[in-house]
Design a protein around this nucleic acid. Sequence first.
DNA 1: CAAGTTAATCGAAGCGCTTCGACTATCATT
DNA 2: AATGATAGTCGAAGCGCTTCGATTAACTTG
Lengths: 350, 350
Amino acid sequence: MVTLAEVARRAGVSPSTVSYVLSRKRSISDETRQKVEAAIEALGYHPHAGARALASNRSNILALMVPLRSDMYVPVIMEIAMAVTTEAREFGQDVLLLTKDEGTQGVRRVAGSGLADALILMDIELDDDRIPVLRETDTPAVLIGLPADPAGLACVDLDFEATGAACAAHLAQLGHRDVALIGEGEGVYKRHTGFAARTLAGFQRGVAEHGLRAVHRACEGTYESTAGVLSRILEERPGTTGFVVQNESAIAPLLSLLRLSGRAVPEDTSVVAICPDPVALQASPRLTSVSIPAEQMGRSAVRLVMAQLDGERDPGPATLIPPTLTVRESSAAGPAARSDGVVRTAGAAT
Amino acid sequence: MVTLAEVARRAGVSPSTVSYVLSRKRSISDETRQKVEAAIEALGYHPHAGARALASNRSNILALMVPLRSDMYVPVIMEIAMAVTTEAREFGQDVLLLTKDEGTQGVRRVAGSGLADALILMDIELDDDRIPVLRETDTPAVLIGLPADPAGLACVDLDFEATGAACAAHLAQLGHRDVALIGEGEGVYKRHTGFAARTLAGFQRGVAEHGLRAVHRACEGTYESTAGVLSRILEERPGTTGFVVQNESAIAPLLSLLRLSGRAVPEDTSVVAICPDPVALQASPRLTSVSIPAEQMGRSAVRLVMAQLDGERDPGPATLIPPTLTVRESSAAGPAARSDGVVRTAGAAT
DNA sequence: CAAGTTAATCGAAGCGCTTCGACTATCATT
DNA sequence: AATGATAGTCGAAGCGCTTCGATTAACTTG
């Protein structure tokens, strides 16, 4: 193994000089810098991570805690993880992968051992038991997701409340009067992450603001449950022409079922999904959707955590990414608009 | 931060004794051990990872290099990553997440800095440029996937050759005479990982052994490309009644297209997929398939790498996991068997 | 031109741990 | 009773780096 001392000897300088060349914490003459860099290159020197961590009290490692299984869609988790890793490298940090099932023990271990400088947590529950540990150990951290009480914690998430409202508004604008939200499974509303509840709240706000009539139903996402949910909605409110879906796995069943029931999308019924873009694009017709900004969430999380490591004390309010609703082929003018003579959107016309 | 010295003071022993309690490298009296453990507990002590790495020359970290984008199906990558992480913890190791686009630089950096003790590489290309670096730096490593020349390297992979053969054999046993393999996209056969080519080779061997007639077509997995591939196959060989699919994304299109063309699955046509179990289970009808043993691959990789860290020199031959073909509802007796009076399988009968 | 700055470098201490050799009991063996 | 093992513990030397203060040389400036 090549050490800093060897580099120093070869460059004819003292070890500390080599260190300063590397860290840029003191000024170094061009001449010296070049000698040192040549020596580093020639020897293929890489600073020893452990020694560095010991001496500087910084490991340059961020720990990312990922759910083993969760309500989240796996590719989204993966995309976040990759975005975090890529962005972390931009800051010269590496990423340590932890699983959520290590729980509070894992947080204690990593924070206590100086293995990582900071934590990024995913799949945040409303009352997440890792949060008190974070507060108590005073570890720099960022949550991807929103807990019940985010005070003093840095958080990143899609603004699901605005998302729900945006979906309702979109359907209202198209002239739909009776709309439905097909959401996540029962359980998701009760325990977990709150994003489902926030979407519902926003949806209801949008519905109220636009004077729509709406129903909401939880849905497990299987073909059977989707069929049950849909038939109940259509029974109660046969005039429902606008749907918002929040469960990726319910999308395909819903589209088939609508087709089977003789309702053409978007001619008779509009569908808006809340899902990753690839899912929306692969459905047929391609779906009008609010995308899950996975990459952006991952990158923001890293930036927030780096700001903390650079001394930022106040995490500020949660970073809520505003939703982007992309109109595609699954939504078009509804009954009210049509009787008003409003023209259909381009997607539907082609 | 609590240090080992503080633990020692509190327990009334020397620092080295605490270290030996922790490492179990020398015998310690029960009495002393208890005092030390009590002190550790009371102080909430966690050994400093960097100091440990420096002194012991072992970081207890495994680096896992994951593809950012690849031919592999994302949930499979995720499952492997999770399995690696979980299994690593069983060995007291943590996992550092690297992206494949860090390439050889990344390997050099991690190996050279002592950040990780060993590497686990995914998405191995036939002529992977990371392999020479591995050899040259003599870093303990395990490949998940099979390169062109695996000599001297520990590898884990599904036995795709046997998988192809097993699929052919299954269709043959059911009495199908004309079969087709719908594979990965063009590109995958050329450059990459070789698993597609190995599957094809095995399929052809199986076909020959059972006296079948077969075609093979690459398929990009979109609806359009699948449609094109299927129609060409049915044009050339209208009597084709057995299909093997290796591209996850071609599965759904294939099933729809068969239905559209009036071929009932499994009554008229049998389909065998090579895909993760969840994909096979979520299709309708549920697919007879050879699963991708993601979890097993991840766990084996960790075990192999730990063996190397424990001094095992010879990696032995590649660990090829034998395929498991699970019969579900998408395959049933074909024309030959039917004329012979062979009964259909249970799945088909229901 | 003496005094004060500033830039560039060095030496040494120390981060928290592991590990080696040395030391002291204790106990079994001659 | 002397010898040798063995178990249990300690002290001290590093592991490779960062960082602080000190030092020197070169440069301003009144």
